[in-house]
Amino acid sequence: MTSLPAPDPEQALARYEAALPSKDLEIIEPLIDADACFVFSEGTCFDREAIKGAMQRTFATIEEDIFQMNDIRWIHRSTKTALCTFMFTWSSKSGGLSFSGKGRGL
């Protein structure tokens, strides 16, 4: 799959955040660049396939999840790359138990 072009990084990030609740990797995967780097609790993934695998494992274990990003600050923007930091909150259920947390993303 190829990444869908977005007019600017803000719109690309908004599309990604809006797609996450679907847990549908057919929708989410095209929004992730082939050379993306994602940091998860269990480690860092350096390409789309590794990111997809981490998401599949996460989506298989959580229910009724909510993930929200806020305080987004853009560090770098160019025609080919963009980098931001953000705060996030999450809540979900797994095995009938409720969990929640917060953190910072890059």
Rank of each mutant, 00 (worst) to 15 (best):
F46I: 09
I72D: 02
I28P: 02
K52W: 05
E49S: 14
L31Q: 08
Y16N: 01
F99H: 13
M87W: 01
K23C: 07
S94F: 04
D33P: 02
T79L: 05
C37V: 15
D47H: 13
L4W: 07
R57N: 10
R77Q: 12
F67S: 02
F46V: 10
E64D: 15
F59K: 01
E26V: 05
S98Q: 08
A50K: 04
E63M: 06
A34K: 13
E17M: 11
K23W: 02
G101K: 05
A54D: 01
E29P: 00
C84Q: 08
C45V: 07
L83E: 10
T2R: 12
R77P: 00
F46M: 03
A12I: 02
D35Y: 08
T85Q: 07
F46Y: 14
G53Q: 14
I72T: 15
P21K: 03
T81E: 15
A60C: 01
I32Q: 03
Q11V: 09
T89I: 09
N70L: 00
E17K: 00
P21D: 09
I75H: 12
I72F: 01
E64M: 03
D24I: 07
I72R: 10
K93I: 03
Q56S: 07
Q56N: 04
T79C: 00
E10S: 08
E42F: 06
P7A: 14
F88M: 05
I28V: 11
S98K: 08
W90R: 04
L4D: 03
G95K: 04
L106V: 12
E17D: 05
F59Q: 00
A36S: 15
W74E: 06
L106H: 11
K102Y: 03
D24C: 05
F67T: 06
D35H: 13
L106N: 13
L83N: 02
L25E: 04
K93S: 12
M87H: 09
P9T: 07
T79G: 03
L20K: 01
G105T: 07
D71K: 13
G53D: 11
S3I: 08
R77H: 04
K93N: 08
T44K: 14
A12N: 07
F67K: 01
P5E: 09
S41L: 10
T89R: 11
L4I: 15
A18L: 09
S100T: 04
L25T: 07
K52N: 10
Y16G: 00
L31A: 06
E64S: 13
L20Q: 04
P7H: 10
D8N: 15
P9D: 07
A18T: 12
I75D: 12
L31K: 02
A18F: 02
S3D: 04
H76F: 10
P21T: 08
R104T: 14
I66G: 02
T89S: 12
N70S: 14
D65S: 14
I51V: 15
S91P: 01
D71F: 02
S78H: 07
Q56V: 15
D71I: 00
R104Q: 11
A50R: 10
T89P: 00
M69W: 06
A14R: 12
I28D: 05
F46S: 06
Q56W: 00
G105W: 05
S22Q: 07
M87R: 11
